[in-house]
C-alpha cells in the first residue's frame, strides 16, 4: 500500500533559550490510506502536538509532514477534526452545528440533508437533531461532534482524545459508533488516546509514544478482524496485545 501520510523527523520545541521545552520528536511515521492509527502515550508526551502538526495547525520546529507527497504548510482543510472539548457552538442545534462545518466550507446544505439524517441515525441521535448542545449529555455531545467532523466526507479524521471526559459505559457505546462509521466510509483516522484498551480495540496499528519528549517506542499492528465488538476484549489475543503495551509503559514508569 502506498503511503498516504508521511511524517519525517518531525520535532517540536516550544519557547527558546532557558524556557525551551522539547515537546515532541524526532519521529517518523508512515500511514496508508484507510488505516486507523492510534497514537498512544502518557499525558504530556506531545501526542496532541503531533496531531496538530499533522493537521498543519501548528508549525513544526523541524522535519516535515506530507500528504500524498504534498508538503503541509498551512492548515489542512480536507480533514475532519475532533477534540476532547467538542466544537459544538451553544447557539446552534445539533443539526445546525453539523451544518456549520458545511457552511464554513461553502458547501450547499441541500446536498447534505440526507447525509446528515443518516449520520445522526447511525449514532442514534436522530431524535435530538433540533436540540441544543447544552440539552444533551456529554456522550451525546461527543457523538454529535463526531457527525460534525465527518459530514463533509474528509479523507482524514483527526481525533484528539474525543472520549477523554466520558464515563466507561458511554465510551464503550461511542467506540462502537466510531468503528461502524469508519468501516462504512473508510477514512484515514489518527486517533490520539491514552487508553490502551481503546487503542487496541479500534486501531489497525498502535504507535506507542514515550514520555516527553515524545518519541516512537514501537509500533504494534493489531491483527484482529473487524468489526471488533466489546467481547473481543475477552479474547486471548486482545489481552496479549494489551499486556505487551502495558509492559512497555511500565518500563517507562508511567504505569
Amino acid at each position: 500500500m502506498k503511503n498516504f501520510i508521511e511524517i519525517s523527523e518531525l520535532i517540536k520545541v516550544f519557547g527558546s533559550g532557558r524556557d525551551e521545552v522539547h515537546a515532541f520528536g524526532p519521529a517518523t511515521i508512515n500511514i496508508s490510506t484507510g488505516e486507523f492509527v492510534s497514537i498512544l502515550g502518557p499525558s504530556g508526551c506531545g501526542k496532541s502536538t503531533l496531531m496538530l502538526m499533522v493537521a498543519g495547525l501548528l508549525n513544526s520546529t523541524s522535519g516535515k509532514v506530507e500528504f500524498e507527497n504534498k508538503l503541509v504548510k498551512g492548515p489542512k482543510t480536507d480533514i475532519g477534526i475532533m477534540f476532547q472539548d467538542n466544537t459544538l457552538v451553544p447557539w446552534r442545534t445539533v443539526k445546525e452545528n453539523i451544518e456549520l462545518q458545511l457552511e464554513l466550507r461553502g458547501l450547499n446544505l441541500k446536498d447534505y440533508q440526507e447525509q446528515i439524517d443518516n449520520l445522526l441515525k447511525s449514532v442514534s441521535l436522530e431524535d435530538f437533531a433540533d436540540r441544543f448542545p447544552n440539552e444533551l449529555s456529554g456522550g451525546m455531545q461527543q457523538r454529535a461532534a463526531f457527525c460534525q467532523a465527518m459530514i463533509h466526507d474528509p479523507k482524514i479524521i483527526l481525533l484528539d482524545e474525543p472520549l477523554g471526559k466520558l464515563d466507561a459505559m458511554t465510551r464503550e457505546k461511542i467506540r462502537a459508533d466510531f468503528q461502524k462509521l469508519w468501516m462504512i466510509k473508510k477514512p484515514t483516522v489518527i486517533f490520539v488516546t491514552h487508553s490502551i484498551e481503546e487503542a487496541v480495540q479500534l486501531s489497525s496499528r498502535v504507535i506507542l509514544i514515550t514520555p516527553r519528549p515524545g518519541k516512537i517506542d514501537r509500533e504494534i499492528i493489531i491483527d484482529l478482524p473487524y468489526p471488533r465488538e466489546s467481547k473481543v476484549k475477552r479474547s486471548p489475543k486482545f489481552i496479549k496485545y494489551v499486556n505487551s503495551i502495558q509492559e512497555v509503559f511500565q518500563k517507562y514508569g508511567v504505569i
Partner: peptide, 13 residues
C-alpha cells in the same frame, strides 16, 4: 476556545 479556533482554521473559511 482553542478548539473552536482550530476547528474553523481546519475549514479554510
Amino acid at each position: 476556545s482553542n478548539e473552536l479556533t482550530l476547528f474553523y482554521k481546519s475549514t479554510g473559511a
